[in-house]
Design a protein around this nucleic acid. Structure first.
Lengths: 160, 160
DNA sequence: GTGATTGCAAAGCGTTTGCACCGTA
DNA sequence: TACGGTGCAAACGCTTTGCAATCAC
């Protein structure tokens, strides 16, 4: 029951309607281009580059400039609706930001992205802080592996 | 004081010599440009961009093209002597790679970089793996804070 | 001597800027 | 209506490529 409620709240928090409100409250206008960009990011389960978003928008029949994608992503990042993902090959892809789940789990084959929580690095942070003399403000953790789908594909290839 | 200088010279010579051997064994030639680039990276305690290295080499009186820096970094990364650092503002800076100390501690003010070890993420990794169905291969952890020098500077500014 | 490496110039590519027109509030 | 947002074209800066001269082996 609690799980279901948590799921509903989580889901609600990520609707494009909610994003529209936040964009509006931040002093920015809601436009067709921005709605489309938000929609594309929310629907995707992997990190998208500006070019990915641009192509997808064109395929959906929207007349849109790549420049608009850049300018929109800049604003969405500023108001924390979107965050940049650093992958092995670069750092120019974006995903929807989810509060309270700051760590990422990446699939190295299909580039799918998931959030996870539950890390507890307080002990490590304290010990490194004592050893180094640094005042530690933040930590940044990512796990890299193979998602269930890609694992299955690998197994099938082995059987064939 | 003298002891420290001797230590630094010994340490540098040792490491730089090691690198030459590794470059050679990997089938690449030792050239003046490459020696200079390796030297600059080994002497630095922070991550350097190709442009940083290029400027430093020119200041040391070496006639060198930026292209050579790019091509050398590419090879050094390939044979694991150098690694790319992902910072908040991008991922185009390099540091010397140190085996067995894969995690970084970054100063957000002066961009100094240090390695640390001693993390134990096995429990976390196992639990995320079970929850998500991912087969987890690697983890990537960075701590971000303020180094002792920058902390001291901050305190002095407060006192003034 | 031979083939890898270098530096320059130029091309390539992702990203940003200038500007006139458009659309939201 | 006013002004933020848009798209196009052009500028920009970082990175890569082509090529002749150079240098390590």
């Amino acid at each position: 029951m609690i799980m279901i409620i948590i799921f509903i709240i989580y889901h609600m928090a990520n609707t494009s309607h909610n994003w529209s409100q936040i964009i509006n409250k931040s002093g920015y206008r809601i436009t067709g281009a921005r709605q489309m960009i938000v929609e594309i990011i929310l629907e995707s389960d992997r990190a998208l580059t500006p070019m990915d978003i641009f192509i997808e928008a064109r395929e959906r029949g929207k007349r849109m400039g790549l420049v608009t994608v850049y300018r929109t992503l800049e604003k969405l990042e500023e108001i924390n609706l979107v965050e940049r993902v650093h992958q092995e090959d670069g750092c120019h892809a974006y995903i929807a930001h989810v509060d309270g789940h700051k760590h990422l789990l990446l699939c190295r084959y299909c580039h799918r992205v998931e959030y996870f929580g539950g890390d507890n690095l307080t002990d490590l942070t304290r010990s490194i802080s004592l050893q180094s003399g640094y005042e530690i403000h933040d930590h940044w953790l990512q796990l890299i592996g193979i998602c269930p789908d890609c694992r299955e594909n690998q197994n099938q290839e082995i059987l064939e």
